[in-house]
């Protein structure tokens, strides 16, 4: 397993102008690594559907690389999205999975059969163009540059150290408020040259 913060630093060196969507407890570390906030988008909002929203974005913006940092608990809620993605073969979609084997944000309860799931194997069987699995930072860091040059849909499974939150919700330290969804959409449309009549 390796730390999300280190993983994001390594990825950040190869991001170029990709649009990035980072989810879950581990995804918070992207804020520290990102240097292009206008290309960071939050597309959460309903259980297990962020992947689908990213697919829509990738299909709608075929000239932009779309990088999703997903979590395994979320993906399990809608595993059918893997063949939905593969069915459209978006060449600009990079699907990173931060697998910490638990529901970190709710106290670390285990994800069903977490230690035996072959995520990269599932994505490969579903029809992703390329799949990878990493359980240490060194291998990830030395390969992520080449991965970002591959034609998608690409799936990258990573074993990530869980950062379990077990404080009652009311006692947890709040993240500073980011941009609203409306502001993110406006910014993204501006940089991607999206015209809406």
């Amino acid at each position: 397993m390796f730390n999300a913060a280190d993983m994001f630093k390594a990825f950040g060196k190869h991001r170029d102008k990709a649009i990035v969507i980072a989810t879950g407890t581990s995804g918070r570390h992207w804020r520290e690594a990102s240097t292009d906030m206008k290309r960071d988008v939050a597309l959460g909002g309903s259980m297990g559907q962020t992947t689908a929203a990213c697919l829509g974005l990738a299909l709608g913006l075929p000239n932009e690389k779309v990088c999703l940092f997903d979590s395994e608990g979320s993906l399990l809620m809608n595993l059918g999205i893997l063949p939905t993605v593969s069915g459209k073969q978006p060449k600009n979609f990079y699907h990173f999975l931060m697998d910490n084997e638990c529901y970190a944000t709710t106290g670390g309860q285990p994800v069903a059969n977490a230690q035996n799931l072959d995520w990269a194997g599932m994505a490969k069987s579903a029809g992703y163009a390329a799949t990878y699995h990493f359980d240490n930072l060194e291998d990830f860091a030395s390969n992520v540059g080449d991965i970002m040059k591959k034609a998608g849909p690409v799936f990258v499974s990573m074993k990530i150290v869980p950062e379990i939150e077990n404080e009652p919700i009311g006692r947890r330290q709040r993240q500073p408020a980011g941009r609203s969804r409306g502001e993110m959409i406006r910014d993204l449309r501006e940089i991607a040259g999206v015209k809406v009549s």
Partner: peptide, 26 residues
Amino acid sequence: LDVISSCREGETMAIAMGLSIAGKTP
């Protein structure tokens, strides 16, 4: 027209949101 085959209905609204952000009409 691009037809996207989905695996579960809940996906359709999320895919539509991504497409709408990109200026499409799903």
